[in-house]
């Protein structure tokens, strides 16, 4: 139960390489996809859910060849894109029944699945309310319910927590973790904290290339021994910025407490700190020429 990508390339007209020779295995469970804006994460996801065709490469999803049998892939994959529209007047139930119809679910199963899913995403009490009045978190949950129609083995979720407040984010992450059971959930996000708490494995993509794959702990360790706390007078801050990789700063009186990424002890005055996942990501991307 895994997704296998081999030397996948996607070139747009004009020569832009959105994906460049990507080779990656995505195992069962929650898998995080990190990367800067424009790295190719959305392109990769759209290729997986058969919205886009790759220029080259081989893809296998749960043993099915993605390129030769896309229709079979569509039956086992659910997609929650970042932007998705709703018909505002439909109630939650009506919307899901409509989506179920679009997916080709037999009518007998539709009702049952819609009921189950509404309970699953905790929207059963709001099932009769029009979608237009839903909060951001509620809309996301409805989107997940829609993606889960047909009980897909693979769930692809694009920036699902953008715009959710911290509580809603935690609830949504928990929901995804529950669902991860025996599925593959591919979670693409900017928010390092989401990956840190929910994913057992992750990959970092930049400009279409794979930069890293492994566990969150392994990514954090990329910055092992390279994170320092340094306190300097506030007036030196400007001058030091050019020379040091400062990733955090805090004003304390007339001084600045800096968090610095550096191979050696900066100015000989730094105190070593334990690296976070964000530090690991930044350290990894640091080595990349602009």
């Amino acid at each position: 139960m895994e997704i296998r990508l081999e030397e996948v390339t996607k070139t747009y007209s004009g020569g832009v390489r959105a994906l460049d020779d990507l080779t990656l295995t995505i195992p069962r469970g929650m898998f995080g996809l990190l990367g800067p804006n424009g790295a190719g994460k959305t392109t990769l996801m759209r290729i997986l859910v058969t919205l886009l065709e790759p220029t080259a490469g081989r893809i296998t999803i749960a043993g099915i060849d993605r390129l030769r049998e896309p229709h079979r892939v569509r039956q086992i994959i659910g997609y929650l894109p970042q932007e998705f529209g709703f018909y505002r007047r439909l109630t939650a139930r009506e919307y899901l029944e409509f989506a179920a119809g679009m997916k080709g679910l037999p009518p007998a199963q539709r009702r049952r699945q819609v009921d189950e899913l509404l309970v699953r995403v905790n929207l059963d009490r709001d099932a009769r309310r029009p979608v237009g009045g839903f909060s951001g978190g509620m809309k996301r949950r409805l989107g997940i319910a829609q993606a889960l129609l047909g009980d897909p083995r693979v769930l692809v979720v694009d920036e699902p927590t953008a715009g959710l407040d911290p509580e809603e984010r935690i609830r949504f992450r928990n929901l995804l973790t529950e669902l991860a059971g025996d599925r593959v959930i591919l979670l693409s996000t900017h928010i390092v904290a989401d990956v840190e708490s929910a994913c057992s494995a992750l990959a970092v993509i930049d400009r279409g290339r794979l930069r890293f794959t492994g566990s969150p702990g392994e990514l954090a360790r990329q910055a092992e021994g390279r994170v320092w706390q340094l306190t300097v007078p506030a007036r030196d801050f400007e001058r030091l910025r050019g020379g040091l990789r400062i990733v955090g700063a805090r004003r304390v009186g007339d001084d600045m407490e800096l968090r610095v990424l550096s191979a050696e002890n900066p100015l000989g005055q730094g105190t070593p700190l334990a690296p976070t996942l964000e530090d690991g990501y930044l350290a990894l991307m640091e080595g990349v020429p602009a």
Binding site: P36, N37, H190, M256
Partner: peptide, 21 residues
């Protein structure tokens, strides 16, 4: 902060600290 990747977030952080002086 919404929509910013980790690098952009670091830049924003430092800019805000500088401005907040």
């Amino acid at each position: 902060t919404q929509g910013l990747d980790p690098d952009e977030l670091v830049r924003l952080r430092l800019l805000l600290v500088e401005l907040a002086a």
